[in-house]
Design a protein around this nucleic acid. Sequence first.
DNA 1: GGCATATAGTTGTTTATGCAACTAAACAAA
DNA 2: TTTGTTTAGTTGCATAAACAACTATATGCC
Lengths: 146, 146
Amino acid sequence: MPNNQFKKGELYSFITGKASTAIGRRLQKNFKQANIEITIEQWSVLYHLWKEDGLSQQQLCDATFRDKPSITRLVDNLEKIKLVNRTSSKDDRRMNLIVLTDTGKELEQVCMGIANTTLNEALEGVTHGQIEIAKEVLQMVYENLK
Amino acid sequence: MPNNQFKKGELYSFITGKASTAIGRRLQKNFKQANIEITIEQWSVLYHLWKEDGLSQQQLCDATFRDKPSITRLVDNLEKIKLVNRTSSKDDRRMNLIVLTDTGKELEQVCMGIANTTLNEALEGVTHGQIEIAKEVLQMVYENLK
DNA sequence: GGCATATAGTTGTTTATGCAACTAAACAAA
DNA sequence: TTTGTTTAGTTGCATAAACAACTATATGCC
């Protein structure tokens, strides 16, 4: 992909990822309107726990593309608002298994509903084919830089 | 775009924007390797000043999709490392015009080179057609949520 | 001119990120 | 068993984001 195929202005949109930023902001706003007081970062952790409860912090790092300090502090804050608990693993005492509280579990339905609504707002007028290609490109970019 | 066209796992990539995050991190790393000590957020401000020097903070907000406090503090930090100066406008004394220092101007060549290289790394193996569609989708998402 | 309103920018607070340095447990090799 | 290495997680520090509340200047209207 030679340089000269890009105009500077186009380059910028890619790097700063304004579209995904916009989705994140909208999601946060939609959570707030539903009186759900969690950040999108917290949501992204909960999202993986809803799929599989009791993940270790390291597994959450891999799943959310965050580093260990970020997960430490996100889990700190999720514990503070009583949505998850740390329980140290019996197999390997180095590991914390992060387990949803009942309140944490109860949030899944409504949060995933809001996430779906938000995505539909974001993708209005975009065809299924376009979405598939966009996903492919994003995935390739991610793989290239891994 | 009905809900059932999305699997949950796909939804997630869109919202968290891991690809653009990855590009940002790589860019930062490439700057660091070239001994350029600026953040990608600072770069995104400089980028617009290189295109047009003497923008107001409000213009930088619009250009970078950031809010006013964010720009205030990015300009604070850019002033601290002596890459820009605030000069209050004579036409409208409410406005600060942000002007590149000589050092700030000198960074353009090498920084834009690194940005281009980074983008080429990121987009290796992605066709021009795919990129065009991805850009369209991101633009539509942004417009939908504006 | 004087008052209401809009606009430009700043400050405070909470949350999150990235990096480096750290502790503690597990594991592997001699 | 002791020594060195890897792995899991935490802490400290600087930078940045989002939101609300604030100051100061400009503008529009009577």
